[in-house]
Design a protein around this nucleic acid. Structure first.
Length: 372
RNA sequence: CUGGCCGGAGGG
């Protein structure tokens, strides 16, 4: 058992499910605690399915196990399954309630979220934060502000969240004021403020702050790379990117995008090729880049190299064919998709319509379950 | 730092 505590860090933090599992298998008497670590390792590496299997194999589960699975299921968009997990769990606590109503809010069910929140007998700062952030993200800055003022105690996250809420509503002045008045700051506070400035077009001020932040967090750097790229200032984006000591997948993908948006395909591609890890976002950015240029061959070559393209990458490729009049190819891919969503179906409807196949377009349209 | 709240990249 002493082995466990030595190995504990290994489970999730070294980025590999397999090694986490290897360590795990070496434990003679896994505890709930170590099982939860394993589940978390799977979740972190996108293996929700594996996480679910591990969950089912556990001899006993605690509230943490249930909540962990609930949250990751919800983040994967499966709110029904998340709700079932919530119903099935034997014990509820403040965290599991907060997780559940947050899941509702993030999946567009603000009413349900609010009614759960209202029904709670005890609430802590994260709970209040989750609720007012949900309002802010649904364009109800007023409600968010009221809740922020009403909540009995704040943590750093509360302040970060309210700063972001004001900035997203376009009130940079108030965001700045709140930022200055924050009782404490953490690296995310700076990140949030830099993002706020960038969103409101204050790139120079954002950059000054970036240069003076007491942390070398990659996220604000990525924010600025994106911001400059969007203004067409690729060179500045590239300079900032080069200064990131340990660019992660998101930062690299953002830089690939930056090159793409500014018609520098070769550089995008060579950065892409050198990436140690890629995800659907990286691939689809690169694929879309070739598609836009009209190089469907290269786009498809990349697409075929993916082990299991996600929804969005499929849709990107379908769109690519459609825009060049190859509806048949679009259709083949569409039918081959493991699952379709409203966006992909709508894209296909548009394909048919543009191709003059109005009956097919209509038929598909009628079959879409949730038209938004 | 075993689970919930805050800042960064892709599709109609």
């Amino acid at each position: 058992v002493g082995k466990q505590s030595h190995s504990r860090k290994m489970y999730g933090s070294c980025g590999s499910c397999d090694s986490a599992k290897a360590v795990f298998d070496g434990i003679r008497h896994p505890t709930v605690y170590s099982w939860n670590h394993l589940i978390k390792a799977y979740v972190r590496n996108g293996g929700l399915h594996a996480a679910r299997q591990a969950f089912e194999r556990m001899s006993q589960r605690d509230t943490v196990s249930w909540t962990l699975l609930l949250t990751s299921t919800a983040k994967n968009g499966d709110i029904r399954e998340a709700h079932q997990l919530f119903e099935r769990m034997p014990e509820w606590d403040l965290v599991s309630w907060t997780s559940m109503f947050t899941a509702y809010a993030q999946n567009g069910f603000l009413e349900e979220a609010k009614s759960m929140f209202d029904g709670m007998s005890a609430r802590d700062a994260p709970c209040w934060n989750a609720m007012f952030t949900a309002f802010a993200q649904n364009d109800s800055l007023t409600s968010a502000k009221e809740m922020f003022q009403r909540m009995p105690q704040w943590n750093v996250q509360s302040w970060n969240a309210i700063v972001t809420a004001y900035a997203q509503a376009g009130d940079l002045r108030e965001a700045r004021t709140l930022f200055e008045r924050m009782p404490q700051k953490n690296p995310l506070s700076w990140g949030a403020m830099i993002q706020a400035l960038a969103d409101c077009g204050e790139l120079e001020e954002a950059k000054v702050m970036l240069e003076n932040v007491p942390s070398d967090d990659v996220i604000p750097w990525t924010t600025m790379v994106v911001a400059y790229a969007q203004k067409g200032q690729v060179e500045e984006a590239r300079r900032l990117f080069k200064r990131i000591s340990a660019p992660d997948m998101v930062a690299r993908t953002a830089m690939v995008q930056a090159y793409v948006e500014n018609s520098r395909l070769e550089e995008a591609r060579s950065l892409f090729d050198g990436m140690p890890e890629r995800n659907g976002v990286s691939w689809s950015s690169m694929i879309a880049a070739y598609a836009r240029k009209g190089d469907l061959m290269e786009a498809k070559k990349l697409f075929d190299r993916m082990s299991s393209p996600d929804l969005m990458t499929y849709t990107t490729m379908i769109e690519a064919y459609a825009q060049h009049g190859h509806i048949q190819h679009s259709k083949v891919l569409f039918d081959r998709m493991p699952e379709q969503d409203t966006v992909s179906r709508t894209a296909m409807v548009v394909c048919y319509a543009f191709n003059g196949e109005l009956e097919k377009a209509r038929e598909l349209f009628e079959s879409i379950p949730n038209k938004d």
